[in-house]
Simulated scan of single mutants.
Amino acid sequence: MPVPVTMQTFGVLLVGALYGWRLGALTTLTWLGQAAMGLPVLAGGANGWVAFAGPTAGYLFAFPLCAALTGWLAQRGWNGQRAALAFAAMMLAHVLCLAAGGAWLAQFVGMEQAIALGVAPFLVGSVLKSALATVTLKLIASRHRDNA
């Protein structure tokens, strides 16, 4: 499988939801910049410019957009105070990530293989990570409300 299973999207979407669209996207870009400079911050310690040219680069390029989408929706009430909407925001961002990643991967292995190797295996994980991110947001929102 050319695409590793990680918790990266969980982190990216949570950063977007917590920081808002601008800071979430900027934070994600900063993290990717660290990878581009050679820091081993991607899955499996991957780093350097080669990570942005290989089969998984489409997912990396989608990350700031996913953080921005989740943040934008969270700022409009799709957040921890409305769990169903927060879950929908996380799922939409996962769909964006899988679509961009799969489209890029298709340039290397063809569309059928890209769907089989880079999209389908991650659908259940996307649902689970979206649910976990939603629960995390809800807990943070309730804790923030309790401390206010």
Rank of each mutant, 00 (worst) to 15 (best):
L65T: 02
N79P: 01
L123S: 10
L105Q: 02
V3A: 06
A103V: 14
L85Q: 14
F87Y: 15
G45S: 02
M37N: 02
M1L: 09
L123N: 12
A89L: 01
Q107K: 09
Y19W: 14
I115N: 05
V15C: 12
G54K: 03
A93K: 00
V109I: 14
F122R: 07
G71R: 00
M37V: 10
L69V: 14
A133Y: 00
L26H: 02
A17L: 11
Q75T: 08
G54Q: 08
L132P: 05
G125A: 07
F52V: 05
M90S: 04
A106R: 12
L137A: 05
T28S: 03
A120T: 12
V3Y: 13
N79C: 08
L139I: 05
N47W: 11
F108Q: 09
K138A: 15
V50A: 15
R22Y: 01
L69T: 05
A36R: 11
M91Q: 13
A68P: 02
P55K: 13
C97W: 10
L18T: 01
A120I: 15
A53L: 12
G44P: 02
A89D: 03
A131C: 11
P2C: 04
L42F: 09
A88R: 01
H94M: 12
A141V: 01
L139S: 11
H94D: 13
R145D: 08
L39R: 04
L29E: 08
A116H: 11
Q81F: 08
L117Q: 13
I140T: 12
G24W: 00
V135W: 14
A106E: 04
W49L: 15
L128I: 15
V50R: 14
F122I: 06
T27M: 00
G16H: 01
S130Q: 07
A99I: 09
V127A: 15
P64R: 04
A100M: 11
S126L: 04
L73I: 11
A62T: 02
F63H: 11
V41L: 05
L60A: 03
G118S: 09
A99G: 09
F10M: 06
T6C: 03
A93E: 03
L139N: 02
A25I: 02
G38R: 05
W21R: 08
V15D: 04
N79A: 15
M90I: 06
L14K: 10
T134P: 00
G118W: 03
S142W: 12
A93Q: 00
F10E: 03
L105S: 01
Y59N: 01
V12L: 00
P64F: 03
L85D: 09
G71Q: 05
L13P: 01
G16C: 04
T27E: 00
A114T: 00
L139Q: 13
Q75H: 00
Q34T: 11
K129W: 02
T9I: 10
